[in-house]
Write a protein that binds this DNA or RNA. Structure first.
Lengths: 120, 120
DNA sequence: GTAATATAAAACCACTTGGTATAATATTAC
DNA sequence: GTAATATTATACCAAGTGGTTTTATATTAC
């Protein structure tokens, strides 16, 4: 039946929900940018931002839950590093629909041609 | 001064915030998928979902504000079509950091090698 | 041991989000 | 004109988010 057939899809939807939402905050994107240079501790990641440590820590947890960041507890510091694999998931999502979008863009161009030619 | 220097960046951050957040909902991604096949009216877009029309309409507005969907009011129907240009923005964001991420992935692999070899 | 450090946890608050139901607006059909 | 249709607008609600302060927990330094 349909319920079992769509279970994997739902799983992927949840993953993409978490991923895109995690990326939908500039503080978190900035943290990823920082981690792209090198691993860092929670404190180091929080330092550039005008917010309390708990706030930054929560952002980090969102990134972690999305699978974008790994954490290795090393004594009393938590060393965080970027995990780019989930970014691949985002890329695959884009790639999969790019095909259709390109076609749509072409047909849209034709559609617009015989209509009001605004800033499309 | 720094304020003026970062203004363009802030603008882009806002655009990316809206984009990623718009994509962070499976209903909206599903609508984009639908629009990738062909333009559709609000009613047609809302039909497959188990929610009221106003709810679907609001999702559509989020997509519109993110620049992912264009709307052409045609009598009493609003014909919506996908605008893939902003997807290019997402792709550029990914591409820009992929470079660093690839490097990070390599150095991470080395890092993990002389440590506990878990599922990285 | 005590004190300092790095971090998370808990409780709270304002704002946003995703949904609802209902009302309003504009267009088409009769 | 009136009625039906397609859609938005408004008011509302529950849950989620992004922030705070305060408290707790481990670890390191002395």
């Amino acid at each position: 039946m349909k319920g079992t057939a769509t279970r994997g899809k739902v799983k992927r939807d949840e993953r993409l929900d978490r991923l895109f939402r995690a990326l939908g905050d500039r503080t978190r994107r900035s943290m990823l940018r920082r981690l792209a240079r090198a691993p860092a501790t929670v404190g180091e990641l929080a330092e550039p931002f005008d917010m309390t440590l708990p706030a930054a820590s929560k952002h980090l947890r969102v990134l972690e839950r999305a699978g974008l960041v790994n954490r290795r507890i090393d004594g009393r510091v938590h060393r965080c590093s970027l995990d780019s694999r989930q970014l691949g998931e985002v890329r695959r999502w884009l790639d999969h629909y790019q095909r259709f979008w390109d076609e749509t863009l072409a047909s849209l161009a034709r559609h617009v041609a015989d209509d009001a030619g605004d800033d499309s």
